[in-house]
Amino acid sequence: MEGLIAGSSSKGLAVPEPSDEALLEMFRSGDAAAFTVLFERWRGSIYNFARYMLGEEAAAEDVMQETFLAVAQAAPSYQPRGQFRTWVLRITRNRCLNRIESLRVRRQHMAAASVEALDPPANQAAPHDAMQQSEEMARVRRAIEQLPERQREALVLFAFESAGYAEIAAVLDMPVNTVKTLIHRARAEVARALAGTDEPGGALGVKG
């Protein structure tokens, strides 16, 4: 297998970091420390993705942990077909969708039993997860959070992971053209939200 080492190989002074795929191979042959490197490298991306998909700290923490445990468990029988990142993001996304679905079902049952909804109490403890919270950043965050689920997941992969359309399509199990449409729409929605108008296609208060 070639290309096990990522980064410049010829004249760079720094020792090249092992690629994700090389680390996974090392883990598969018994090197537990290699998995720790993968966790350190990808935990931020996985958490951020889950956090935007689920909108909640505790659930995103659970998904981060579950995802890496699932990767560790599946690694021995894993047949590499592409990038490690694509694989781990797919697992993250599927875990998030399962949670969203089971929450939806529970809500229906609760509604049927006319019990109080499952929404977290309004007066929650402050979250522990951090984010740079300038006013501008907070507006961008809200704009992303308010996107419909499919646009949101596509845009998060596009903006945070700088993933190409093909990789996003692989993570989301969608045709590439669907992904393109979702991203164009999501960018337009964010533009609309940041410009402070919610009239789709209507007259805008925005001036150059």
């Binding site: 958490y47 981060m64 704009a143 992303i144 337009a188 533009a191 805008l204 001036k207």
Partner: peptide, 30 residues
């Protein structure tokens, strides 16, 4: 005007606000 808004959004999305897991969650997962 919409093109300006899209350009502003694309600039914002080039350095988007990233959620970071808490130290406690990272430790528990580790």
């Amino acid at each position: 005007g919409r093109m300006h808004a899209i350009a502003a959004a694309d600039r914002a999305l080039a350095a988007p606000p990233r959620w970071e897991p808490s130290a406690g969650a990272v430790l528990a997962a580790s």
